[in-house]
Design a binder for these strands. Structure first.
Lengths: 349, 349
DNA sequence: ATGAAAGCGCTAACAC
DNA sequence: GTGTTAGCGCTTTCAT
């Protein structure tokens, strides 16, 4: 008895487990069931028109009855299109990026595309390698977020792809579309805000030296400081992390140049700076005002809550995908979009 | 003159941009260049042996000279293997998950596999849909992180896949491999720690009702409280977010049952609870001790820094991929791994 | 409006 | 050790 039961269960499990793989229904099966040719099935299911309403009806119901799923390999082999977008971010554990990814994911799924995600993590050399690796997966296009590669190398890496969009990095129209945060303007607002709050000696933690967005921030800071008749300080560069910000702030503090405000490359840096201030017994915001960039979720949760320039992350992800898809279709005609960051005044200023 | 220059530039740009796509080098090209048959090229490049050292040499150098990249569609069409793993997480913007993903990504890349990522976001119904959607991409196996689906539905959704691994959710060996955090033991440690610190009235924020890990925590809490002769309080359920934790804590506080410690489902909940305490004028840790779970990066950055049970996220991601790959090869023989969380005592207790 | 034939690039199975 | 044949499932092209 017991044996029989066991055997029965195993059988059943086998049939269930491999159902969709064993009996892979192909387009031919659907065609047979609908009494038409495979070609007609293909046309109907791809919405390529040229089929009577009645035939379409039969095909569609046959396909769903058989639980037909077109084989993406066969489709890709013929059409050389994967319906996949390569998405490159520096580091998924930096909370700035998941929001962008979510936006991109939504837009991609809505258009029937998938995202293939990669993390750069280490060097800018790795960036080129990964852009290249997407080629191997025959992605239809790529989106690169916060590229750190020098222009020439970046353009070269991008060139074999059918379409490309950069987030927070500019490029010629024929190389890539661009979704830019207006960092220059944002930085300008940060400075205006600090000056309005009575701060006059403003120091800068500038993030990575090779960040394009970092350069934009610096330009905005310099211009606006000049407008107020204030002198731009020497920026200090560091990793875009909490640890990087802390080290940079400690260095700045040790130099005893006596500043009363600190503009940071991003929120992670600002949080590191906040730690450094606390360790040095400097009160925020009384003795030191702090402004970050990005508005990652932690910014609001810190105490004191961090004043920062909110970058519209989800919107950028969505815009990037939409732009890429349009560039895939229209041969890279569309160029780009600039999105304004929004000053979130909180407790550190 | 100007026209000629323009034309030249356009030409050049065209050639560069589409180089790898226009002149797709196939296995036949490599074969011709190496003076062998396509089959030999295939064998050499896939390391299937049976080729003289000298021939292999010629093939390899021809392939790299021509910058040959095997077409994954053709390969997949023949072999019905995609070298892709489906990875499902509830929400990539929850900082608990990116670390796991990073671990999984590393292990997958090391084995020549790619990760196809999906977010559940909404409902547990969507969870089933997405597990199903992976089928369409012909993933070789799937990893599901923190599944919320009821057992029967989960097993059904998993069954058509060739291999599956669950993270923080148990399942029969033949349904899926499992990588578990020992939440029960971890919760036990949290209670012991609080009791050792002199806390006697411990409240619980229990996270989502349908979380498997949540149930484990509750069991550990109940047992350990009983060991100390203390009574287990009624848990309060909520979303696993900052907002959810805050609302739950406010409710608890409003009930005025007079507790002096709060064990939270995760760090996000604990941070919400911390906000609620601050708003109510309750000092942490003096009047209220707080323990979270996960040890997400913010936990350490909060002030007071959060005492929490560190879950070894990256290791779990790596282990999940390794287990999945072994199950793909060995027909689901391997079962699972349990990983102990680590109590990080910080400032909230 | 529908179908037939051909072939995308690769590899499993079978020669030699 | 190496080559030949065939065909994976789909869609493009051309015919009806």
């Amino acid at each position: 008895m017991c044996d029989i039961v066991t055997i029965y269960l195993q059988r059943d499990e086998h049939l269930t487990r491999h159902k969709d793989f064993e009996s892979k229904t192909t387009i031919a099966d659907v065609a047979r069931a609908a009494g038409v040719s495979p070609m007609t099935v293909s046309r109907v299911l791809n919405g390529h028109g040229g089929a009577s309403a009645e035939t379409s009806e039969r095909v569609v119901s046959a396909a769903s009855a058989l639980n037909y799923r077109p084989n993406p390999f066969a489709r890709g082999l013929r059409s050389d299109r994967s319906r996949t977008i390569g998405f490159l971010v520096p580091d998924i554990t930096n909370p700035f990026f998941p929001e962008i990814i979510r936006g991109a994911e939504d837009a991609a799924n809505a258009a029937g595309y998938n995202l293939l995600l990669s993390n750069v993590v280490e060097s800018s050399k790795r960036e080129a390698e990964l852009i290249d690796a997407f080629l191997l997966h025959r992605v239809d296009g790529i989106i690169v977020c916060s590229a750190r590669l020098p222009d020439a190398a970046l353009h070269k890496a991008l060139s074999p792809h059918r379409a490309a969009v950069l987030i927070n990095r500019e490029a010629p129209k024929d190389v890539a579309g661009t979704i830019m945060t207006d960092y220059e303007h944002g930085a300008s607002r940060a400075i205006n805000h600090l000056v309005a709050r009575g701060r006059r000696k403003i120091a800068i933690i500038a993030g990575p030296r090779n960040s394009y967005g970092g350069k934009c921030r610096l330009i905005g800071i310099g211009k606006t400081l000049a407008e107020h008749g204030l002198q731009a300080p020497e920026p200090i560069y560091c990793d875009p992390t909490v640890a990087g910000g802390r080290i940079a702030a400690e260095e700045l503090l040790a130099a005893k140049s006596g500043f009363d405000a600190l503009v940071c490359y991003n929120d992670l840096n600002a949080i590191g700076a906040m730690k450094a201030c606390r360790a040095a017994g400097i009160t925020v915001p009384q003795q030191m005002a702090l402004v970050g960039f990005d508005d990652i979720p932690i910014a609001e949760l810190m105490s004191p809550a961090l004043t920062t320039l909110r970058v519209h992350k989800r919107e950028m992800g969505e815009a990037a995908v939409r732009l890429l898809l349009s560039r895939i279709v229209t041969k890279n005609k569309q160029h780009g979009v600039v999105i304004e960051p929004e000053l979130m005044v909180r407790e550190t200023t």
